[in-house]
């Protein structure tokens, strides 16, 4: 099986996306790209410890949803969640500091790369156990429906998640309760090191399962921010209007390995080359230029983003290690960790 033509059956959007929004989407994707490239450099320098999972090549999806979502909507992401966090407007510096384990980190160093959370931005967590956050996202959606608050939960996950039980439990319950949740499967072709097609009974791991829950089969070119944005607007609106959940399969490609430990050698060279040609940022930039955007403006954006990444890096480096007192704090809501008198 191949994905070569899969995008052709994808969602044909007809939403007119104005130039200003396109520029914002471009800027956001460049931010995500340059932030993660910097994070990788810092890892090589020994300043980012542990592991982290990059979204290089997948930026269009989180960027487009970030623009389409409203304040008050909730994002639930996976351990591959840097992009989704930044796309909700969380500043770069605390995210970089969290990756570096610094006091000024988004969670003061207590979570790390795989657990980025900023409740004030609607970033309700990055979850490091595959599948766990799908049921949690439907809980938020349940709360929205119960309180009639019209908030929508958006839950991002990878293709590998479609083979774990929590995926099916969450889809079914969301469907029968008509919950305002949008499930976004970022199909990047690999569960971790193994091709998703080698371990899945259907060609489209998410879309081909949608009918099992009475949902539409939705496929979108996940490297096209305009297409993703259009689909996001449509599906968020349906959720907000009480029409229940959606399951979207966004076709994309992870340009690097699964995590820091993985060079991704299992991927055929031809496949990598083909998807690099479909890089969401270079292709979008070309589209904007063809449509009349000024190359100088886009260059200026690139420069501004690099300066922003530099500033965030310096801020993160300037932050000290987290105070050790934090170790025994915030197990419980009283702020402490006591379990006996």
């Amino acid at each position: 099986m191949t994905l070569a033509n899969a995008a052709h059956e994808g969602f044909q959007h007809n939403l007119v996306i104005d130039r200003d929004l396109q520029i914002k989407l471009y800027r956001r994707m460049v931010e995500l790209r340059q932030f993660e490239k910097r994070a990788y450099d810092l890892f090589l320098q020994g300043l980012v410890k542990g592991t982290s999972h990059l979204s290089l090549g997948q930026e269009a999806i989180s960027a487009a949803f970030g623009e389409a979502m409203q304040q008050g909507d909730w994002t639930f992401a996976t351990y591959r969640g840097h992009a989704h966090t930044l796309s909700r407007g969380v500043p770069m510096a605390p995210v970089m500091a969290e990756l570096m384990g610094r006091a000024d980190g988004l969670m003061a160093g207590k979570g790390g790369s795989m657990h980025l959370t900023s409740v004030e931005h609607g970033m309700m967590g990055s979850y490091a156990i595959v599948g766990a956050h799908l049921p949690i996202a439907i809980g938020a959606a349940f709360s929205s429906k119960y309180r009639n608050s019209h908030q929508v939960a958006v839950c991002f996950f990878g293709d590998g998640t479609t083979n774990i039980g929590a995926f099916h439990e969450a889809l079914n319950l969301a469907a029968i309760w008509k919950l305002p949740v949008v499930f976004v499967c970022e199909n990047n072709l690999y569960m971790e090191y193994t091709s998703i097609y080698d371990v899945t009974a259907v060609e489209h791991p998410a879309a081909d399962r949608a009918s099992a829950y009475g949902l539409e089969r939705l496929i979108v070119d996940g490297n096209d921010p305009d297409a993703v944005y259009s689909m996001a607007i449509d599906r968020l609106s349906r959720a907000r209007n009480g029409e229940g959940p959606s399951l979207i399969e966004a076709l994309t490609y992870r340009q690097t390995g699964h995590s820091r430990a993985d060079p991704g050698k299992y991927r055929p060279d031809e496949e990598v080359a083909r998807w690099l040609e479909k890089d969401p940022i270079t292709t979008y930039r070309a589209r904007l230029v063809v449509n009349g955007a000024s190359g100088a403006l886009l260059d200026q954006i690139d420069g501004e983003v690099m300066a922003e990444v530099d500033r965030a890096t310096e801020q993160a480096k300037a932050s000290g290690p987290p105070p050790v007192e934090l170790v025994m704090k915030d197990v419980w809501s009283d702020g402490g960790s006591g379990w006996r008198n």
Partner: peptide
């Protein structure tokens, strides 16, 4: 039925639902 709900046999979905609801203002 708005406040007392039968679920499918889906323990992960049940517990995810109460966790997500608790994160967003309910006491499930």
């Amino acid at each position: 039925p708005r406040r007392v709900l039968d679920t499918p046999i889906s323990e992960q979905a049940i517990l995810g639902t109460v966790m997500g609801a608790a994160m967003t203002g309910l006491r499930p």
